[in-house]
Amino acid sequence: MSARIEAGALRDFAAAILQAAGTGEADARAWAETLVWANLRGVDSHGVLRIPRYLELIGTGAINPKPRMAMRMQAGAIGLLDADQAPGPVAMNRAMDEAIAIARRLHLGWVVARDITHAGAVGHFALRAAEQGMAGLVMTASGPLMAWPGSAGAVVSTNPLAIAIPAGTRPPLLLDMSTAAVALGKIMAAKDAGTPIPEGWGVDAAGQPTQDPAKVATLLPMAGPKGAGLSLMIECLASLAAGNPLISLALRGAGAKEGPRMNGLAIALDIAAFGEPGAFTAEVDALASAVAAVPASGATPVLLPGDRGGAVMARRLREGITLPDGTWKRLSASAAGLGVALPGLLSS
């Protein structure tokens, strides 16, 4: 049995669980906002199904529910944020806000965030810049989860990349992608739903292709060497620049191959510096209209980056968010263990 719940109620419920686990009220609400935003856009792999795992990581001390984040360095447009193992969304909100503040003065803000934890759907933070009329770029880096072409096991990570471009009369363009063939959370979601995964998403412990999400040991890169190479470059820009390498230490056996230790990068670009106010966003609208007007090859219309997620969000805001039985059971158990009341569900 699945559970269907109104977005605001799910956000309050998620925040209550995270706060009961020791997160400060404002941070718990910001964390929950990012998770439910992912659910609303149909990216359930990065939504509230992650909460039970986050609670485990808070319990072990791997996630710091009350971090003391601080900007450790700023040189011109570049800054370094020490996130103190903060919840990922809390850290990346701060990193992007710092980047936007720098860009307001210098037209570009480039902030590396050291020692964050899992940030979820990174498009949420890129949109933070687009909502201020700036282009936003976000990347995060973690330890080995994904194969390198020709490797027998995990070498690089599924490091995501998001770019948000402000528009005029239409919503911002939003590219939000993993460097893997699929994000790990989608395999988690398939496991919760009890459904097989497509071939090409991952391999088992013996390095053989599998469609059983429970047997996936290593993810496969998007477009082979292209996805693997892009992941490696993100490790350079986010981790090496932060003085906090992840991949090299793990491959040498000096660090855990998996875990919450991560780094991030938030970039804000003041588009208005290039010309007349409104000229750029008008051209974005024109570009989007031209692409959308191209004849479709089938029944599905031509979509721009972010359009699918926006349509799903509009529907789920009206109809509620449906959580698979496995996700709802684990959330309910987490809530019970922390003394958090269950929210009301929408009728079927």
Rank of each mutant, 00 (worst) to 15 (best):
Asp12Ile: 02
Phe13Gln: 03
Phe13Cys: 04
Phe13Ile: 05
Ala14Thr: 15
Ala15Val: 15
Ala16Asp: 13
Ala16Arg: 14
Ile17Ala: 10
Leu18Val: 11
Gln19Ile: 07
Gln19Asp: 11
Gln19Gly: 10
Ala20Leu: 01
Ala20Cys: 02
Ala20Thr: 10
Ala20Phe: 04
Ala20Pro: 01
Gly22Trp: 12
Gly22Pro: 15
Gly22Asn: 14
Gly22Phe: 14
Gly22His: 12
Thr23Ala: 14
Thr23Phe: 00
Thr23Pro: 03
Thr23Ser: 13
Gly24Thr: 12
Gly24Ile: 01
Gly24Met: 01
Gly24His: 04
Gly24Asn: 11
Gly24Pro: 03
Glu25Trp: 08
Ala26Tyr: 02
Asp27Asn: 12
Asp27Arg: 09
Ala28Cys: 06
Ala28His: 06
Arg29Gln: 13
Arg29Thr: 09
Arg29Asp: 06
Arg29Phe: 05
Ala30Thr: 07
Ala30Pro: 03
Ala30Glu: 09
Ala32His: 09
Ala32Leu: 06
Ala32Glu: 08
Thr34Val: 15
Thr34Met: 06
Thr34Arg: 10
Thr34Lys: 01
Leu35Trp: 10
Val36Glu: 04
Trp37Asp: 15
Ala38His: 15
Leu40Trp: 00
Leu40Lys: 00
Arg41Val: 06
Arg41Glu: 02
Arg41Phe: 00
Gly42Thr: 12
Gly42Glu: 07
Gly42His: 13
Gly42Leu: 09
Gly42Lys: 06
Val43Glu: 01
Val43Pro: 00
Val43Ala: 07
Asp44Cys: 05
His46Trp: 10
Val48Phe: 08
Leu49Gly: 11
Leu49Lys: 10
Leu49Ala: 11
Leu49Gln: 15
Arg50Ser: 07
Arg50Ala: 08
Arg50His: 11
Arg50Met: 15
Ile51Thr: 04
Ile51Lys: 02
Pro52Gly: 05
Pro52Tyr: 01
Tyr54His: 10
Leu55Met: 03
Leu55Trp: 04
Glu56Asp: 15
Glu56Ser: 07
Leu57Val: 03
Ile58Asn: 04
Gly59Val: 13
Gly59Ile: 12
Gly59Met: 11
Thr60Glu: 02
Thr60Asn: 00
Thr60Phe: 00
Thr60Met: 05
Thr60Trp: 01
Thr60Cys: 03
Ala62Cys: 03
Ala62Phe: 00
Ala62Asp: 14
Ala62Asn: 02
Ile63Glu: 09
Asn64Val: 12
Pro65Ile: 12
Lys66Gln: 12
Arg68Lys: 12
Arg68Pro: 00
Arg68Trp: 01
Arg68Ala: 13
Met69Cys: 05
Met69Val: 02
Met69Glu: 06
Met69Gln: 13
Met69Leu: 02
Ala70Ile: 10
Ala70Gly: 02
Met71Ile: 14
Met71Gln: 15
Met71Trp: 07
Arg72Pro: 00
Arg72Ala: 12
Met73Pro: 00
Gln74Pro: 00
Ala75Arg: 13
Ala75Leu: 07
Gly76Ala: 07
Ala77His: 11
Ile78Arg: 08
Ile78Cys: 07
Gly79Ile: 03
Leu80Arg: 11
Leu80Cys: 05
Leu80Asn: 09
Leu81Trp: 01
Leu81Gln: 02
Asp82Tyr: 05
Asp82Phe: 01
Ala83His: 04
Ala83Ile: 07
Ala83Thr: 03
Ala83Met: 00
Ala83Cys: 08
Asp84Phe: 13
Asp84Val: 09
Gln85Lys: 07
Ala86Arg: 08
Ala86Asp: 06
Ala86Ile: 08
Ala86Ser: 09
Ala86His: 04
Ala86Asn: 10
Pro87Ser: 14
Gly88Glu: 01
Pro89Ile: 11
Pro89Met: 06
Val90Cys: 10
